[in-house]
Write a protein that binds this DNA or RNA. Structure first.
Lengths: 270, 270
DNA sequence: CGTAGGGTTGACGACGTTCAACACAAGTGG
DNA sequence: CCACTTGTGTTGAACGTCGTCAACCCTACG
């Protein structure tokens, strides 16, 4: 990929946008003048694409966007529907996926706070997106995004950098899906979740040993190209081997990060 | 992903760049004034990123690039080396891959004529690239690409569109790797090769029934997350079932495109 | 109290891998 | 010119990882 300097590796993840659902469902917050304040005080302003719009121009951004709050399990984007909107995730986690006609599904990524979803090159979305937890989204039409791209070269640059980053993530995930064993897949996934936790909880002293796993076993399985039974068995095995602990399903403690890393990259023969 | 209008779906594929090898190996062609003509007459000019630079400005492009010809099996980019260059593929096919420490390898994509390789967001390349056939590349440093991005908004727009397109391809490949059977994987791969043949041979009357497969079974296996034996067996089975024919390994004739499509998307129970 | 959703565990089997032998073509050197 | 090697591909047999099917536990909820 192309190196896009000035915007190092703090960028978003996989793409995925919203549909009609977001017009009817979801409560909008903010309005008119107060919108500018909403953007300036946004929890993820400094971490996401919006940081490339200066404070003095933030009114433009505020005018172009609307916030929506969605409960867990809500469709944000339906596969194959017309592509019209773009979303920044302010809070919570969104899953992106592609499906086969018979219902088999592959989750291509999770977008956490600070990341975006909804880029599309074609008339329709080639993927679906659904909330994993309660999610706060910032919605923007593609038309508005295009205006921003034209007006603010830094914004275009930042977006290119972010998409390039996502592509690199996708390539690493292909390595996982095509060449890793079930144990290596689960270990890699937990490492990703630790990194994610560190990003969103930079001051938590336990960040080195905590993985936040808000998604269900079904989602993990669809993300790793496994079945729920294999995911469950593998996590149990990691617990038995004292690599991880924690009785709670959605918050896992890491007992040995080095071991987990060795497993993830196939260096552990066991 | 974001829709980037004005640059529909004619864009490149996966990324992958060049390294020091390209300075020592490979013969440069063109020089000084004649470079402009080289760019204007370039076989892929209208299909790739360069089309976003107007003819009148093509001297800039010519000045920024150098052509290199490489024999099959040459490393273009070594995983983990400093990311400094970007390549347009003018002729031939380049494979992009990621590896595990023990040598397991996943090919993340093939870049054919008109596509590019070498985008990177970080200091080093996270992937490797190697020629499949004899390849003619157009090399450009990242610094020069950045200059073009700054000078020509259309170029930036086009690149964003291309990377977005690659991301969509990557997501579809994740579905293949995580959820398809061996037979579905091979059928999907052949469909991609047919599309690729149609793109590069738009006037060939046999384009509906021809798949060009320049890569070896090893490469196909590493692309589909299978072993060479399984690839070989599956292709033999497709031949037995009269879905494809052809005794030659690198040029496959399609006997029934509908059947092949049904298999690729899991609609064929057989 | 009954039901539904999420998760765990066991028994069994299939799909794809591993191991191995073989075929064929191209290149190399005696 | 022919033996030998090397790279690529095919095919068979045995094995093993992971998927399938099923039973069960637990919590939440009406």
């Amino acid at each position: 990929m192309l190196k896009v300097p000035g915007f190092p590796d703090s960028a978003p993840m996989p793409p995925s946008p919203s549909a009609q659902a977001l017009h009817s469902a979801g409560k909008r917050t903010g309005r008119a003048d107060t919108d500018t304040a909403r953007c300036l005080m946004c929890k993820v302003r400094e971490y996401n694409l919006c940081s490339s719009i200066e404070d003095q121009d933030v009114a433009v951004l505020a005018h172009a966007t609307r916030q929506v709050s969605l409960p867990p399990g809500t469709a944000v984007i339906e596969e194959g529907t017309p592509a019209s909107a773009f979303f920044n995730v302010i809070n919570g986690t969104v899953k992106l996926f592609e499906s086969l006609p018979d219902g088999r599904r592959q989750i291509t990524g999770f977008a956490d706070a600070g990341q975006f979803v909804g880029l599309s090159n074609s008339r329709t979305y080639s993927f679906g997106a659904e909330t994993v937890s309660t999610v706060l989204l910032c919605r923007c039409t593609h038309t508005q995004i295009e205006n921003l791209l034209g007006e603010y070269p830094r914004f275009a640059h930042h977006l290119l950098s972010a998409v390039t980053h996502e592509l690199a993530d996708a390539q690493e995930q292909m390595l996982l899906l095509g060449r890793k064993t079930a144990k290596e897949k689960v270990a890699s996934f937990l490492l990703d979740r630790i990194k994610q936790y560190q990003r969103t909880h930079p001051h938590d002293p336990d960040a080195q040993t905590t993985a936040s796993v808000p998604m269900t076993r079904v989602d993990i399985a669809d993300y790793l190209g496994l079945t729920i039974e294999t995911v469950s068995r593998t996590i149990s095995a990691l617990r038995r081997d004292k690599v991880i602990s924690g009785t709670e399903n959605h918050c896992i403690r890491i007992l040995s990060l080095p071991n987990l890393q060795d497993i993830a990259y196939g260096l552990k023969s066991i």
